[in-house]
């Protein structure tokens, strides 16, 4: 077994293990941290597949930003595990049926008979000066420009919708207008009063 193969199986094993931990841990914070570990191992596997841009962006976006916000919310919420787990046995049969259905569907679409060296030749290793990032950028901004723009617009709409749904004006909040605070001059606030000196009595 070559060193790369060993690395692949190592990262894949940790990935699957931490993914299992995500759904079996009792503490939601531990689950979220195992999800972070899973992302890291996925990024490592992508690095092995010479997709360095995607691998680093996965760490940057999902680990560096999305999961931080996730943890932020989970830590702030007071999740009562008893209510979450109530009815676990009652819903178990339905859950198993759904899980088996999804597994069968995934095996049908992504099963081993669709892949393998006979279907796809092994990709050649890219030359040393090959720049994954530049290639991806060229492809995104020429061939797939419309798809990219549409995705961007959809994200913008979702963002505006989320903000407008949660934004509320609170009349009782004591907001400060920073611009007006900056515009204040000395004469607006300070009054110097001349008064005669006290005489010694």
């Amino acid at each position: 077994m070559s060193f790369e193969k060993f690395l692949f199986y190592l990262f894949a094993a940790i990935l699957v293990g931490s993914a299992l931990m995500v759904i079996t841990r009792r503490n939601p914070v531990h689950s979220a941290l195992f999800l972070v570990l899973a992302f890291f191992n996925m990024a490592a596997i992508w690095l092995l597949a010479e997709a360095e841009f995607l691998a680093i962006v996965l760490v940057l976006v999902y680990v560096g930003a999305v999961m931080v916000l996730f943890l932020f919310v989970i830590m702030m919420l007071d999740i009562d595990l008893a209510t979450v787990r109530a009815g676990f046995i009652k819903h178990l049969p339905v859950g198993i049926v759904v899980a088996v259905l999804m597994l069968v569907e995934m095996v049908l679409v992504l099963g081993p008979k669709h892949f393998g060296l006979t279907k796809y030749a092994a990709p050649e290793a890219a030359p040393a000066d090959y720049n994954n990032t530049a290639e991806l950028g060229l492809s995104l901004f020429t061939q797939h420009l419309y798809a990219l723009e549409i995705a961007a617009v959809i994200l913008l709409v979702a963002m505006i919708a989320a903000i407008s749904l949660t934004l509320r004006k609170r009349p009782d909040s004591k907001r400060q207008n920073v611009t007006r605070q900056h515009m204040v001059k000395k004469k607006d606030r300070l009054k110097i009063i001349k008064m005669p000196a006290e005489e010694k009595g």
Binding site: E52, F53, I56, V59, L60, V63, G64, N132
Partner: peptide, 18 residues
Amino acid sequence: DINAGLLYLLAMTSIGVY
């Protein structure tokens, strides 16, 4: 000497928060 050095740095400085 990696191609995506700048991205790597950004990723590393962002996961220090954990």
